[in-house]
Design a protein around this nucleic acid. Structure first.
Lengths: 196, 196
DNA sequence: GACGAGAATCTAACCGATCAGTTAGATTTG
DNA sequence: CAAATCTAACTGATCGGTTAGATTCTCGTC
């Protein structure tokens, strides 16, 4: 059954995502969110508790969306990094949410869903290292962090991005990331896989 | 001559740096800053204008400190990345300031001092590429961004940092960064430099 | 070296605006 | 009718910024 309130909830969540991505938790305004959602302010408190919990809900949804967007492939890590890059370009607000969260909730433990996904990635990555498909010169968790960081290198707030909408520049950035990850993970001596 | 007000100004700046690093611009409280500096709130407005301008002053000082800390060396980029990592470990609040700035002042142009320093780095990097000391497979500006991003990979807010104060882990992170940058910048065929 | 005017420095109290959260009730739905 | 959904107005606290005035320092003049 389609409930009326579900649509309102969805509009509020959508508006809250924009607002939190733009201004962070401290900077977000509950009145702006309800106005943008064409909903009454009180509904936020009825449906989501308060501003902090609303952020939690928004953030959880964003993380889940991100996890689904780029399936982890330990045997093609450059491709995985490229997919992440594409996702960040397509959804710039999600990475902003993640950065706000890191800054405004320093002590927050990782969401269960994200934790599970990370453990899964680490397992696959270790296996690929053992199989000789990926360089084993550093532990899987370090390698994973570096790959993730490289993927997000140009996603907002980096030294010389600024010129948005430049497809040529974006292509260069993507290429740089893919090449970099390739160099990071390529095993020193041949072990089955080789790429053109 | 040593002016009394200079000491007050310095205390305010110190307190403001802590406050902004902790809470960002929107989250920072001028009353907390003045209290932490044991100074009257009004002095902030007398000396620095307002909260936004106080942040500008704090941020500018932080950038200058960061630029002085790790001298750029295009011929030893892994070492440069390592020095940056060390600085981030020693001064965790400065990188937080930079991240707050990126999020809360999206359209802000780069500070002149930072712009100048970046141009200088790019020139040196290009020269090193031309000389065959550094891989020329991607433009200098892209390479520089990737190096900077790698250096800051574990500086706050990354997936599995959390355990601060762990010297062994920090050493692993530093090593991972140095090795990664080494792989990034090493030219494909021998060109003078070779490393163990 | 005393002294006083004026500038520099500092203080405490205040103010208007804003904001998260509440309440009481209207309207719709089942 | 009763529960779910929604609305508008209100509230108490907080916060950035201001104001008026107290205190201290600077320096020329006698």
């Amino acid at each position: 059954m389609v409930k009326k309130s579900d649509a309102t909830k969805a509009r509020l969540l959508q508006a809250a995502t924009q607002e939190f991505a733009m201004y962070g938790i401290a900077g977000a305004r509950v009145d702006r969110i309800s106005a943008a959602a064409s909903a009454n302010k009180n509904l936020i408190y009825v449906y989501f508790g308060n501003k902090e919990q609303l952020f939690d809900t928004v953030y959880q949804a964003a993380i889940e969306e991100l996890l689904e967007a780029a399936p982890f492939d330990a045997e093609d890590l450059p491709g995985y990094a490229g997919a992440l890059f594409d996702f960040y370009v397509a959804h710039p607000h999600l990475i902003r949410l993640a950065r706000w969260h890191a800054l405004e909730r320093p002590g927050d433990e990782v969401l269960p869903v994200a934790y599970g996904a990370t453990q899964d990635k680490l397992r696959k990555l270790s296996a690929a290292q053992s199989a000789g498909l990926v360089d084993a010169g550093m532990p899987a968790h370090a390698l994973l962090t570096l790959i993730l960081v490289l993927s997000a290198a140009w996603s907002d707030g980096s030294p010389e991005a600024r010129a948005t909408g430049d497809a040529e520049l974006a292509a260069l950035h993507r290429h740089s990331i893919v090449v970099s990850v390739g160099r990071l993970v390529r095993p020193p001596r041949g072990a089955g896989d080789s790429r053109g």
